[in-house]
């Protein structure tokens, strides 16, 4: 027994067989015949749930963030989201699949000198109009992203953040209610109308967030880099929508 498994030829054959078995198994599972259609569908529903969450359509109970049920997401999405816009350069067009635009790919396109397509979702709820934009950036370990709902003056009406691999208990807390709710009512513009963004600030001496026009929310202890990532993605991505909001005022 010992001799057989110690031979080089056996080792090589073992490696080849093992890699082939494992490779075949995993690529089958991740392929179109395997679980991929189900996973893609789940991701699509999740995007609708995220957008709805940002504009306040959710099943939140006290303290925890709960999406609308996944089987109802499609229906609610077409009920509340009245228009899906794509802003490309100076042009604005409607596209009913704008929510499927991959922000990561668009960011890469802009980096390579192309024009970025900016999706913007217009929602109506209780007579109020919401403008919801996706944002994406880097946390400490991996990607972070989110959706921010604004009114026509770029005052935040709701926010949803998510992350791929931030530290549980620290950076991962950006998707906790107490952090996301802090953004509600916060102004993205400075008092004289320039775009300033919202900074996740340490020691801003305003933990209850009474001052909504200071462009700051309270940071999470132990999650400095994730917090900086949130500030950066808000500043960078939402700034691109400023011309659109300015054109709204002209009307």
């Amino acid at each position: 027994m010992e001799n057989r498994t110690d031979k080089n030829s056996y080792t090589i054959i073992f490696v080849i067989v093992m890699v082939m078995v494992v490779g075949a198994l995993l690529s089958f599972l991740a392929s179109e015949d395997g679980l991929n259609p189900l996973i893609t569908e789940n991701r699509r529903i999740e995007k609708q749930q995220n957008i709805l969450y940002a504009m306040g359509v959710n099943d939140n109970d006290e303290g925890s963030a709960v999406f609308v049920a996944s089987d109802k997401a499609g229906e609610e999405f077409s009920k509340y989201i009245t228009k899906q816009l794509v802003i490309e350069g100076g042009n604005t067009s409607e596209d009913n699949n704008a929510y499927l635009i991959d922000v990561k790919k668009e960011q890469a396109k802009a980096k390579n000198g192309g024009t970025r397509r900016l999706p913007l979702f217009v929602g109506e709820k209780d007579g109020k109009t919401f403008y919801i934009a996706p944002i994406r950036g880097k946390g400490l370990w991996d990607a972070i992203w989110g959706y921010v709902a604004m009114d026509e003056n770029m005052v935040v009406q709701g926010a949803y953040f998510d992350h791929k691999g931030e530290t549980p208990g620290l950076g991962a807390n950006i998707k906790q209610r107490y952090f996301m709710d802090d953004f509600i009512g916060e102004h993205l513009l400075s008092k004289n109308g320039d775009f300033k963004g919202i900074t996740v600030a340490k020691g801003n001496a305003d933990p209850k967030n009474m001052d909504k026009t200071d462009n700051e929310v309270d940071a999470i202890a132990g999650a400095t880099i994730t917090g900086d990532g949130v500030s950066a993605m808000i500043k960078k991505d939402l700034k691109l929508y400023l011309p659109y909001f300015n054109s709204l005022k002209g009307k």
Binding site: A30, L35, I39, S70
Partner: peptide, 17 residues
């Protein structure tokens, strides 16, 4: 992968682990 396909909510919680 199985969780992502059949229990998406749970997989979101576990993905960082």
């Amino acid at each position: 992968l199985v969780l992502k396909a059949f229990a998406y909510e749970l997989s979101k919680t576990l993905s960082v682990f």
